[in-house]
Simulated scan of single mutants.
Amino acid sequence: MSIRLWPCIALSTALASPLATFPALAAAPQNSDTQQTIEFSANASQAAPNDLGVATLYAESNGKNAAALSKEINQRIGKALDLARGFASVKAQSGGVSTWPVYTKNGQGRIDSWRMRSEIRIESQDLGALSELIGKLQSDLALSGVAMQPSPETRRKIVDEATVSAIQAFDQRAALIAKTLGKRYRIVNMSIGDSGFHPPMKVRMQAAPAMMADSAYAPAPLEGGESELAVNISGRIELLD
């Protein structure tokens, strides 16, 4: 009988050792499975002054001779750029240029003439100077539109301020959630992004041909207003005992 017992005892001992490790091996995934996380978002918005005016004006004409037409349009744009250089606080640059053929209407598809359009873009935080320049440029150019928006410096400043507010809002909401559930918390991850701004629609200002000579040098009325800048935060917190 004793001879038969020894193998059984040895077998029992051999089995006991690996079985004893099973709870330890299961411990790590068990903690991972019981981890409690919550995802949510928060945002903050702030008004930004539209302290930058941007205007687009253009010269457009048609003619039988493409080279002569190009010379005429380029001279008008060059004259406009020279005039803009006299306003130190205004930044000016040439814009898009396009030329296209005008076909005859008799169905033969022949080119009857050419049409050309060239733009100039001006911008400034000095709205008084910008308004005066727009008025003078309209003696020879047509005004496509004026838009008011925050300058890059103003936008960065307001976005930074809104970011601080959004982070505080996220943290406050995280604390509220954890407190309601009787837990502590830690932030696992956070994603921050701004939604940009939505400037007012471009204001189109056109004068009738008969009135152009009288109104050409009249300053264009400009009012900055405000744009709304928003910062959005999405993230995840882990609830702790």
Results as ranks from 00 to 15, higher is better:
157 K>H: 02
164 V>P: 00
187 I>T: 12
170 F>T: 05
157 K>Y: 05
179 K>L: 01
167 I>V: 08
183 K>S: 02
163 T>N: 10
176 L>C: 05
167 I>D: 14
183 K>G: 00
193 G>R: 10
193 G>S: 14
182 G>M: 08
184 R>W: 10
169 A>E: 14
182 G>H: 08
176 L>I: 08
189 N>Y: 10
193 G>D: 09
177 I>E: 14
190 M>R: 13
160 D>E: 10
174 A>H: 10
180 T>L: 03
195 S>G: 05
166 A>L: 10
164 V>F: 15
194 D>V: 11
159 V>I: 15
171 D>F: 02
195 S>Y: 01
165 S>F: 11
185 Y>P: 08
175 A>P: 10
169 A>V: 06
178 A>Q: 02
178 A>D: 05
183 K>N: 04
161 E>R: 00
196 G>E: 05
184 R>V: 03
171 D>W: 02
166 A>F: 04
171 D>L: 06
166 A>W: 02
176 L>Y: 07
162 A>D: 13
183 K>T: 01
174 A>C: 01
165 S>Q: 14
191 S>R: 11
183 K>Y: 04
192 I>K: 05
161 E>Y: 05
177 I>M: 13
159 V>Q: 07
166 A>C: 04
185 Y>L: 03
186 R>P: 00
191 S>H: 15
191 S>K: 14
192 I>P: 00
181 L>Q: 15
185 Y>N: 07
171 D>Y: 04
169 A>Q: 14
169 A>H: 09
172 Q>M: 11
155 R>V: 04
159 V>E: 14
178 A>P: 03
177 I>V: 15
163 T>V: 08
194 D>Q: 09
164 V>W: 13
188 V>Q: 13
182 G>I: 07
168 Q>H: 03
165 S>E: 06
177 I>N: 01
171 D>E: 15
178 A>F: 03
169 A>C: 08
173 R>H: 11
156 R>I: 05
180 T>I: 11
167 I>Y: 01
192 I>W: 13
177 I>F: 13
164 V>L: 12
168 Q>N: 12
161 E>N: 04
171 D>K: 12
168 Q>K: 15
181 L>T: 15
168 Q>A: 09
155 R>T: 12
183 K>A: 09
175 A>T: 07
181 L>C: 04
190 M>N: 04
178 A>N: 08
180 T>W: 01
182 G>P: 01
158 I>M: 03
191 S>N: 11
162 A>L: 13
173 R>D: 08
187 I>S: 01
192 I>C: 04
192 I>F: 08
179 K>V: 00
174 A>W: 01
177 I>S: 03
195 S>P: 00
159 V>R: 06
173 R>G: 04
179 K>T: 09
185 Y>F: 13
170 F>D: 11
181 L>H: 11
157 K>I: 00
187 I>A: 10
163 T>F: 12
178 A>G: 06
188 V>K: 09
173 R>C: 04
155 R>M: 09
186 R>N: 06
182 G>F: 12
190 M>D: 01
